[in-house]
Amino acid sequence: MSADTTAKLPWFRRSYRNFSLEEKYAVLGMILIAPTVMTFCAVIAYPLIAAIYLSFFSIYTPTMEGHWVGFSNYATLLQSGEFWRSLWNNIIWTVGTLTLQILFGILVAMMLHQNMVFRSLARSLVLFPYFLSTVVAVLVWKWLFNDLYGVLNHLFMWAGVIDMPVDWLGKMPNAMLSLIFVGAWKYFPFVVIAVLARLQSIPEELYEAAKIDGAGVFARFFDVTLPQLKDVLVVIILLRTIWDFKEFDLINLMTGGGPIIATQTLSLMVYKEAFALNQMGASSAVAVLMMLVMLVFMALYLRKAKGPSE
């Protein structure tokens, strides 16, 4: 081993000219990643650490002045009913809307997988809600839900399902159910596309073999399709859990957390504490706690995402 034993100075004692090819490449690689790293430090790492730091202060938003209070923000939160109620709302919302998204997503994906007329137009129409601005989605649904002139009340009354116009967003459990439903409408296309892509890669022979073995439509779904979808479904569920859990726009715009705090999730509580109640420290504490809950799912997803690619 000749080159190993000819002792080289450490890289920082040599000029760039004396770097080996490998070291020169490493330098170039680091230059290329530098803008990313700097941006990350400035807009993600710093705020993240600052959020944790701020959660130990009591800060009045308009003056931005405060003092150290240690863990008292956390202690207050964990004793308050509002935090636990928001967490519970958050779980109901996430589980509810996610279940609908998955069921509806698989159904529509299987439908689009069949041979139907104008399939690509159908696919575009199905995809559209996902790309739509949440503001637009909320405005449209608020108009549909409108208690006096909304189409939904007319339709249901005409069909005889209800006799009186229903207050879809101002009452419980209507408000939560409406939220869950609109959330499902907005986000199920994600499931559709991911599942559809996987469906298209299931070899036709598997179905033919199952047919020869005498499997009916349902048996083919449960014995062939579902096992093939398992992996992609796990990833979709993890991702959508994370995204639904942190949803802010839809809930804030639809109900604002109301009636009172019946649909308030943790994201909304963070916002309310900081900008309505002017308690930045307490708000940061909620944000940190929320992130701790999410870390479980993030860790699961990171492990899952790392697995197959390597």
Binding site: M1, S2, A3, D4, S20, L21, E22
Partner: peptide, 10 residues
């Protein structure tokens, strides 16, 4: 080719 660098040797 120079697409990998030897760990040692010339």
């Amino acid at each position: 080719a120079g697409l990998e660098t030897p760990s040692a040797g010339e």
